[in-house]
């Protein structure tokens, strides 16, 4: 019999989660002192590190300078040891360029760039271990890093990948599920207002199913936002204890 059974008759997925359950999210903010902002985030076995510099003056070619807002510069990379198969990953391959661009678009929608005209904000994200949902984990990690840097945002940007199996949407796909022939969709959401920062889908999906899938994705993103909020509050508490305020 070919393939994995992604959803058992009893309603469990291969790793034992139910359809709507997220993987366990753990995060820490301010992991690097040198950077303006940084965060480390684990979502299941996918682990990402995000670092933010800025806002600072434009570096390099000044022609990119925008007079009414800040430029966001994103760079995505994957550690050589991040996947089961070890591959050399040259910088700037098609996949990471695309991912960098997606991240840039996401954060342009969320960061209040108009507060910093003629400046630049750098966001670097590295996947240390990959187990599905790389984009979403990067977004979630970068959100924390941006907050850590003290850059104002309209809202948390939370992202989540959802897939569609046997007429059931599955939240937060792991690698095995992504590879199992599921049509998946990645959504980055500003949960409070329900605005979509980015929506990405490569697979085929019938439009009739799109709505259910979107709903599941929104719910999942809101779930993520709750966790992120907790992390931020916890971090603030720790910091305020340290500074004695």
């Amino acid at each position: 019999m070919a393939g994995l059974e992604l959803l058992s008759d009893q309603g469990y997925r291969i790793d034992g989660r139910k359809a709507t359950e997220l993987r366990k999210v753990q995060a820490r903010m301010g992991v690097f002192a040198q950077a303006d902002g940084s965060a480390y985030l684990e979502q299941g076995n996918t682990k990402a590190l995000a670092v933010v510099y800025g806002p600072h003056e434009m570096r390099g070619s000044r022609s990119r300078t925008l007079h009414d807002r800040a430029v966001i510069n994103c760079q995505y990379s994957m550690a050589t040891f991040s996947t089961a198969e070890r591959k050399r990953r040259p910088h700037g391959d098609r996949k990471s360029t695309e991912m960098s661009l997606h991240l840039k678009q996401t954060f342009e929608a969320a960061v209040m760039t108009q507060l910093y005209p003629r400046s630049q904000i750098d966001i670097y994200v590295k996947i240390l271990q990959s187990d599905g949902g790389n984009y979403s984990v990067c977004v979630n990690a970068a959100t924390l890093a941006v907050i850590d840097a003290g850059i104002p945002m309209r809202d948390y940007v939370c992202a989540c990948t959802v897939g569609f199996v046997d007429e059931t949407p599955l939240a937060d796909l792991c690698y095995a599920e992504e590879g199992g022939g599921v049509s998946s969709l990645a959504l980055a959401l500003l949960p409070r207002g329900g605005q979509i920062a980015l929506l990405q889908m490569d697979a085929r999906l019938h439009q009739d199913h799109l709505e259910t899938l979107m709903e599941a994705a929104m719910t999942a993103c809101k779930g993520v936002s709750k966790v992120l909020d907790e992390v931020v509050r916890q971090h603030l508490q720790e910091v305020s204890v340290l500074t004695g305020e």
């Binding site: 291969i14 034992g16 198969e85 271990q129 187990d131 792991c174």
Partner: peptide, 11 residues
């Protein structure tokens, strides 16, 4: 040889 790491949730 490939090292496969998978999560396994216990409920």
């Amino acid at each position: 040889v490939m090292k496969v790491v998978r999560e396994h949730y216990l409920r």
